Simulated scan of single mutants.
Amino acid sequence: MRGPLVLACLTLLGAEASAQEVVKIGHVAPLSGPQASFGKDNENGARMAVEDLNAQGVTIGGKKIKLELVAEDDAADPKQGTAAAQKLCDAKVNGVVGHLNSGTTIPAAKIYNKCGVPQVTPSATNPELTQLGYKTVFRLLANDNALGAGLANHAAKQLKLKRIAIIDDRTAYGTGIAEVFKKTALANGVEIVDQQATNDKATDFMSILTAIKGKKPDGIFFGGMGPQAGPMLRQMQQLGLGKVYLFGGDGVCTAELPKLAANVKTIENVVCAVGGAALDKRAQGVEWKKRYDAKYPGQFQIYSAYAYDATMVLVDAMKRAKSTNPAVYAAKLFDTDYEGVSAHVQFEPNGELKNPAMTLYVYRGGVRVSTN
């Protein structure tokens, strides 16, 4: 039989549990299709942040908070992306980390803006996103203007290349970064000998590469993702393009690219860029990566650290606003001054990251290595 003291304790525990406010953080990325490994990596980063915060214990506006991750799959498809965004709005999430791709993030941003939910993308890099004029959009890494220009400058000034062909995958990300690369390369006196298009599901590039081979390029820029870059590198090897550089943005720059390329020799000709400082160059990044690898062995790709920071930044703004209400805390995101694992996070008035770093990578012995 329970005595009065036991009942009183149980009542207090129940009251404490009921006093906890559940704060929902939405996350959207491709969890199916060719880019699923990228999407899962992002989700892992956001989930890790939620678990860390819950373990620390978070109080906002005098209330104890329990964070919950609401994860959705957009399959890198714009239609599924907008459907997922509406689903999160209907679920009344308090903030969103995502989406992964520019092609899904840009149309989804309109929906989040309409329902007033702040959105921090850890990976969408098309400059158009922050040109929409929404006060709910934030980006946690350098955009394609920085990545495309940085790669073109490296190709022209450091590698002294003269003839470059361009391939893009017709997505908002691929075409956007390819156009920036082209504009900067031309300004540096580089000749664009050919420009071809594919799609983000393709795996056969033989006809495109054969046409390009006839133009005798010393470099190829690919605006697209790793699942396409891997087969492209294999086919470059088959066609005798073993001395031709392959440039790509962050979508190409994955730890698993050598595996996708079956470790062909052409992997050593890849130069790619990521919009942030290398994790191994930041003390916080080194420690975080150890924890990530222990928790999610073999799953790290590129953006999970940014997804982790994006989650932390949303909650940091809630703390400073003393409110989890998006209408109240959204404005506080513009005042962010947060030391993350990927960067020191501050935002420009349009939601872009202030002073974003860019890291160039190459592959040596099947391992991605930063060059700066």
Score class of each variant (00 low, 15 high):
103 G>C: 06
73 D>I: 03
211 A>V: 08
111 I>M: 09
212 I>D: 05
80 Q>M: 14
238 Q>M: 06
292 Y>C: 02
90 D>Y: 06
283 A>G: 05
229 A>N: 04
197 A>F: 08
262 A>P: 01
80 Q>P: 04
332 K>A: 09
260 L>Q: 14
24 K>I: 13
309 D>R: 05
252 V>C: 07
139 R>N: 10
368 R>T: 05
128 E>W: 01
322 K>C: 00
68 E>W: 01
330 A>I: 04
329 Y>Q: 05
40 K>I: 14
203 T>D: 12
341 V>Q: 03
157 K>P: 04
107 P>M: 11
294 A>I: 02
310 A>R: 08
155 A>K: 04
233 L>N: 00
322 K>F: 03
299 Q>T: 11
234 R>D: 00
326 P>Q: 07
8 A>S: 09
211 A>T: 15
277 A>C: 04
218 D>I: 06
154 H>I: 05
40 K>T: 15
210 T>L: 07
296 Y>P: 07
290 K>I: 05
158 Q>R: 13
146 A>Q: 15
334 F>S: 11
57 G>W: 07
68 E>I: 02
360 L>R: 06
232 M>W: 07
235 Q>M: 01
366 G>C: 01
270 V>F: 05
304 S>M: 06
248 G>N: 04
305 A>G: 15
41 D>C: 04
241 L>S: 09
41 D>E: 10
172 A>M: 12
366 G>N: 03
259 K>V: 13
369 V>L: 06
96 V>L: 14
175 T>C: 00
111 I>T: 12
299 Q>L: 12
26 G>Q: 01
113 N>P: 03
361 Y>A: 00
145 N>A: 11
199 N>P: 01
334 F>R: 09
110 K>I: 00
39 G>F: 12
282 R>G: 08
247 F>W: 07
91 A>H: 03
305 A>P: 12
206 M>C: 01
181 F>V: 01
235 Q>V: 08
302 I>R: 12
264 V>T: 09
234 R>W: 01
264 V>P: 06
77 D>N: 15
326 P>K: 00
159 L>F: 09
265 K>R: 14
85 A>P: 09
293 D>P: 05
